[in-house]
Design a protein around this nucleic acid. Sequence first.
DNA 1: GGCAATATTTTACGCGCGTAAAGAATATGA
DNA 2: TCATATTCTTTACGCGCGTAAAATATTGCC
Lengths: 343, 343
Amino acid sequence: MSDPKIRNMEGFAAVSGISRPTLSKYFNDPESVRKSTREKIEAALEKHDYRPNIYAVNQNRRQTKNIGLVVPNLTDPFFAGIARTIEGLIVKAGFNPLLLSSHGGPAQEITNLESLRSIKPAGVLLAPLGRASLEDQVAAFAGEVPTVLFDANLEGIGEAFFGSDNNQSINLIVDYLCRSGEPPVFFELKTPINPNACKRRTAYIAAMEKLGHEPHLIQVEGQGWNFEEIGFREGARILTKQKLPTNTILCSNDRLAIGLLSAAFENGIKVGLDASASLRIAGHDDHPFSRFTCPSLTTVSQDYDAIAARGVETILSLIESENRIERREETLFEGKLVMRGSA
Amino acid sequence: MSDPKIRNMEGFAAVSGISRPTLSKYFNDPESVRKSTREKIEAALEKHDYRPNIYAVNQNRRQTKNIGLVVPNLTDPFFAGIARTIEGLIVKAGFNPLLLSSHGGPAQEITNLESLRSIKPAGVLLAPLGRASLEDQVAAFAGEVPTVLFDANLEGIGEAFFGSDNNQSINLIVDYLCRSGEPPVFFELKTPINPNACKRRTAYIAAMEKLGHEPHLIQVEGQGWNFEEIGFREGARILTKQKLPTNTILCSNDRLAIGLLSAAFENGIKVGLDASASLRIAGHDDHPFSRFTCPSLTTVSQDYDAIAARGVETILSLIESENRIERREETLFEGKLVMRGSA
DNA sequence: GGCAATATTTTACGCGCGTAAAGAATATGA
DNA sequence: TCATATTCTTTACGCGCGTAAAATATTGCC
């Protein structure tokens, strides 16, 4: 805001009348200097627009203020949403979030961790791809940098894991579906990449058996993260070519359900609750778009505010304590039933 | 991968038998050293896993290899998709992309630029919020850091702009809609935040008049980026309470159309092309979810591969040439008609 | 007003690397 | 083979800041 451009802290010391070491203290923690000097510094900052060179700072600090945040796929609004929530919490804690997406690829996931390593993050929040993850390399990274997993668990990797209680949530919706109509079949990928998908499958089977129904899995071909596409393509196949044992389909996730709903529509199959409908479809996750499907999708919402909050909390305390956690913590949060038009 | 951990380039010089200045040359450009020494260095890298400290490097280089990438809203899969494409191109060029989302907020947009400033990016690719952007502050930033705009234009800000030719694309779809059925009304926000929305409105009016039809705007209330929500809420209102002059609605963007389709479905209004349908709906953008709406959404796709490619190309040449462009370039790319089931 | 406690200044070094200059080594070509 | 052009090594300095230690200044308190 004023005449001579200030190039470094020395220069700012000159114009502010405060010594450089004291300024350094101030920038690391404004509360650590006397109130009167703090005011002098802040008054000078108003006029002179100086900020410490972040590279010089990070070169000398023992720890950076960076926290890495890696999600499997930012193109999925579900993860974009979580990422946004987490970023907000990190900023509020005075740290600097760095968001990276693995774009569904294991190699990219490792690349992301590698590039995080070079910025020396104080900690990392990682939502791994799951089965596709190159576990050895992820584990190696987590051995060097305090890492907390969320969304998808990799056994024994990282200091903690926060995710959804698939057992509870699948139970919830299977129970609801059975109470309100015919028991559901389970629509999923044959070879799911995500551990949550596997847990949901076994949870489905257990829930059905508990209620005295025969579980029925519909496992379709499909790779990658284009779930809507798979749900649409394979959904069309099973809806037209295959005789379903019931009129109710529970999908392993909402994105599959979105594709399936679209396939049902295209094939003139009416989905919903009223008498004229011949099919019920439910999902899992409460994807941002699930409110706008036709009909709107009945599903289970994940408590991702809680997951985000606990994840950030944990990585921060890990950073604070400067050492690793004594025992790896795994916490699962309960889902909530979201009743809409499709089931 | 070997015994004594290497802490700096000095240490790596010791184990590799190459002097530090030469190593420095190598890391800045492997091709700049003789082949035989390059091989020696790379052999040593295989065994010793050393990488230059990025903070020390950036402190001393005149320019970093960072390129900022700011999008208005990562929760929108459209921007997530563009961002991914652009990131890929930046990496391929040997630079380091830094992705930030403004989350629909002008203050966040400025915060993003501020935090980019502190990492001293060589250049920035910015998709601004549009009307909501705090133009003065964006302009001030663009005055300090080479900046290229895309998606939404801010007059005179940045070295160049790449976006869609809304005039052409709206013409295209209005033309198609008129040829294939009744001329469309235009469904949009009363006070759009995005300059593209304004251009689309005037393009719609011009296209209609050119074809000898009376333009008809339906402008609904609504703020923010939750377009589906607005499309759904206001769509339900106009579909039930208002007599439309035609059976065809062109939406200002796909996300509004997705909400509107959902509203039509909820109200038992059949959308599509066949005789039994009473409404046609079209959108604009070819949003990733538009293929899976019910019915699938007829729309215009933006050529965002071209936008991404030219944007990256431009910022790179700007960085290379170390100075600003002589004349601000504005390039618009044509859209393609995507015919699906809804219109 | 004087003392102890606390805060600031002064001085100095180190972080890891870019880079310039001069001399030594190596490659190139006729 | 030798002269020449490249490339590398050695030496040295600087980047902007963290931080330690000792000296000095300021504050709070009785």
